[in-house]
Design a binder for these strands. Structure first.
Length: 337
DNA sequence: TCGGTGACCCTTCCTGGGGA
DNA sequence: TCCCCAGGAAGGGTCACCGA
C-alpha cells in the first residue's frame, strides 16, 4: 500500500507516494553521509538522469534531503536532513542500524573538505561495483555498507622486536560487501543455495603512509585468523575458513598501488593473496574486469628484474616510472569474481 | 484518473580557452 | 586585458506514455 505524505502550509505543497526506492536512497544517504547526484542516479535510478532529477527535486522540495552549498557548476552533493532522518525512523527503516540521535548524525555529516573527497570516492567505488554487479544478473547484493562504524573491529598490532606483547588497534573499513551467487543446477537453473563472496573495501587518497596501509593489512589478516567475521555472524571462531574475505584496496594511481604491493610483500610474513589492489581509474571503468592484482602477482611480475621486491631498499624513495611501465606490461591482472 | 517517468528544451550561473 | 563563446551542472516547464 503506497504511503502518502504532504507538507503543511507554504505554496504548492508537494505530494508524493513513497516508493521502496525513496527509502533505499534515504538509507543510502543515512549510511554514506554524502553522495553526489550523479552517484545517486547510478545507484538508485539505473543511471536514468531525467528520472533521478525529477525525483530528487521532489525529495528536496519535501526537505527530506538537501544539498551542500556549492558553486553552480560544481556537482550537487546530497545529504539527509533531519526531516529525512525522522521519516526513516517513523517508517521503521532504521531498525537494523545502531540507535543514533539526530544530533549525532548531524555531527557525523559535518565533514571537512578532505573527508568529503574521501567519502565521495568511496561512494564512487560503491556505485561502480553496484552497477557492474547488477549488470551481470548473477549476483545479489546482500550487504553493501560504507559506514565504517558498522564493521570496525579490533585486531592485534604486529609484534615489534624486543616486545613481548603487541597491543590492539581498531580497523575501520571504508566499506563491506557481501554477495550472493546462486548455485546453478545441472540444467542451468538457479537453486536455492548460493555461494557467498565477502569483501572489505579500502579507498586510498594517498594521505596515509605505506606503514599505515601495512598495519591495516595485518589487521585484516588477524581478524580473519581469529575468526572475527565468523563470530560476527554467530558462528564459532574455528569456522573462520568459511568466512574467508578479500580486502580490496583502491589507489589513486599505479605508483601508489605498486608501492603498497611492495610494502605488503616486505611484511613478515608477507601478505600474498588476501589483499587485492587496483587503481581508482581502472575500478571505475571496469570494477569486475581484469584490473586487480595481488601482491603475489606483483612479486611474480617483478621477480628477477631490477624491481624485484625482495631486493633491499637503499636510500630515499625515488619515483620509477619505468617500474610502473614494467608492471603494467608483465603483471597478470585478475577479474574480481 | 493520477502519479511516475522519459524526453526534450530553455534558462541560469559560472569557468576556461581563444582571439583581438 | 577584455570580450566572446562553448560547455558543464542543475532547475524547471511541457508533453506523452504507462500502469495501477
Amino acid at each position: 500500500m503506497p504511503e502518502k505524505k504532504t507538507t503543511k502550509g507554504g505554496t504548492a505543497a508537494p505530494v508524493i507516494e513513497f516508493q521502496a526506492r525513496d527509502f533505499e536512497l534515504l538509507r543510502g544517504l543515512f549510511e554514506s553521509r554524502l553522495m553526489t547526484q550523479e552517484q545517486a542516479t547510478r545507484l538508485y535510478f539505473d543511471g536514468k538522469t531525467e528520472a533521478a532529477k525529477k525525483r530528487l527535486q521532489k525529495l528536496k522540495a519535501l526537505r527530506l534531503i538537501a544539498e551542500r552549498e556549492r558553486r553552480v557548476y560544481h556537482p550537487a552533493i546530497l545529504y539527509l536532513t533531519k526531516r529525512g532522518f525522522d521519516c526513516l525512523a517513523t517508517h521503521g527503516k532504521l531498525s537494523d542500524y545502531p540507535r543514533l540521535a539526530w544530533h549525532q548524525l548531524e555531527k557525523r555529516a559535518q565533514v571537512s573538505e578532505l573527508t568529503l573527497g574521501h567519502e565521495i570516492d568511496v561512494v564512487q567505488v560503491k556505485a561502480a561495483l553496484a552497477v557492474a554487479l547488477r549488470a551481470t544478473g548473477r549476483f545479489a547484493i546482500a550487504e553493501f555498507s560504507t559506514w565504517p562504524m558498522l564493521y570496525q573491529f579490533k585486531a592485534s598490532k604486529p609484534r615489534q622486536a624486543g616486545h613481548y606483547s603487541s597491543g590492539d588497534m581498531v580497523v575501520k573499513p571504508d566499506g563491506y560487501l557481501r554477495l550472493h551467487e546462486p548455485v546453478r543446477l545441472p540444467d542451468g537453473s538457479a537453486s536455492d543455495e548460493y555461494d557467498e563472496h565477502l569483501f572489505f573495501l579500502e579507498v586510498d587518497r594517498s594521505t596515509e603512509s605505506q606503514e599505515t596501509l601495512a598495519l591495516k593489512a595485518h589487521g585484516y589478516r588477524d581478524y580473519f585468523q581469529r575468526g572475527g567475521l565468523a563470530l560476527r555472524y554467530g558462528y564459532k571462531a574455528e569456522d573462520y575458513k568459511s568466512f574467508a574475505f578479500r580486502v580490496l584496496m583502491v589507489f589513486r594511481n599505479a605508483e601508489r598501488r605498486n608501492n603498497c604491493a611492495e610494502t605488503l610483500l616486505r611484511m613478515n610474513p608477507p601478505v600474498l593473496t588476501q589483499v587485492w589492489l587496483a587503481t581508482q581509474e581502472d575500478v571505475l571503468r571496469d570494477p569486475l574486469g581484469a584490473v586487480w592484482m595481488r601482491p603475489q602477482d606483483y612479486r611474480d611480475a617483478t621477480a628477477g628484474s631490477a624491481f624485484d621486491a625482495s631486493r633491499p631498499v637503499k636510500g630515499v624513495y625515488r619515483r620509477r616510472p619505468e617500474r610502473e611501465a614494467w608492471v603494467a606490461a608483465k603483471v597478470a591482472y585478475r577479474g574480481l569474481i
